[in-house]
């Protein structure tokens, strides 16, 4: 375990250093304040973080967590149901396939008219985008359970809630984690868009506001904080998966 953690840490470090180098090269070659130097950005970030960036990040994080939470609560049971029930699958899946690729972002104005311009519309928008990842991932996870595995669990006396606990949930969890990883990335970019409307809090708002003010250093500090948030969330998800699904990480 110790060595695995070390490798992850050095890999993250390696990633950060590579990006910093590329960034710096751009900064030097472009020679314009449009791309501030990494060093200046980090300094600005440190100054802005305690009172400004942290507030915006927290607002965004709240929206993301709420959207992901709602998507799990709605998407997991529905995914389990259509995964196990052929009839439900044949009725619901075609509908999902039509809705899934629609550019839901285009519906933001409609959500804002129907749900008000506050957080509800923003969170709803994210839910309508990521719920499909979760639903389809869970459904496929259930469908992939070999019939023999189901039979052998039944033959040991497993039934009812036990089937969920010992068979279905563990089979679905790795798929759920992959779906969450994708969802996280999508939620962050969707939120960035949604936060440009009718709010003064949120990291998306902060970045775009700095841009309109032509303050590129603030803008980059905002982008930096957003990417750090993403990194933190993805790493936490990885750690949770290692803890909850240890059988997926055998050497």
């Amino acid at each position: 375990m110790k060595t695995i953690e070390k490798i992850i840490k050095t890999k993250t470090l390696y990633g950060i250093i590579t990006i910093l180098i590329i960034w710096h090269v751009f900064h030097i070659t472009v020679e314009s304040n449009v791309i501030p130097s990494p060093y200046e950005t980090v300094r600005r970030f440190i100054v802005l973080f305690p009172n400004t960036l942290s507030m915006h990040l927290l607002a965004s994080l709240g929206r993301i967590m709420l959207a992901i939470g709602i998507s799990i609560i709605l998407g997991v049971p529905l995914g389990l149901w259509i995964g196990m029930n052929k009839k439900a699958d044949s009725i619901i899946s075609p509908v999902i396939y039509i809705l899934y690729p629609l550019p839901k972002i285009a519906f933001l104005p409609i959500f804002m008219i129907l749900l008000g311009i506050g957080n509800t519309a923003k969170v709803t928008l994210i839910v309508t985008i990521i719920i499909f990842q979760i639903l389809i991932g869970v459904r496929d996870g259930v469908k992939e359970i070999p019939r023999e595995l189901y039979y052998s669990a039944v033959s040991l006396g497993v039934s009812g809630a036990g089937i969920y606990r010992h068979l279905i949930m563990p089979a679905v969890l790795p798929r759920l984690f992959s779906a969450l990883r994708l969802s996280l990335g999508i939620s962050i970019s969707t939120l960035f868009f949604a936060e440009n409307f009718a709010t003064t809090y949120g990291i998306g708002y902060y970045i775009m506001n700095a841009w309109t003010m032509v303050d590129y250093l603030d803008m980059f500090a905002g982008i930096l904080s957003l990417s750090l948030l993403g990194l933190l969330l993805l790493r936490s998800l990885d750690m949770a998966e290692r803890k909850i699904c240890p059988w997926m990480f055998l050497k």
Partner: peptide, 23 residues
């Protein structure tokens, strides 16, 4: 009735101990 199949019959997410203890 105990049943033993060719493959796929141990739960991949349980250790040997927990697989055996399940019943």
């Amino acid at each position: 009735t105990g049943i033993i199949l060719q493959d796929y019959s141990l739960l991949p997410w349980k250790t040997v101990w927990h697989n055996v203890a399940l019943g």
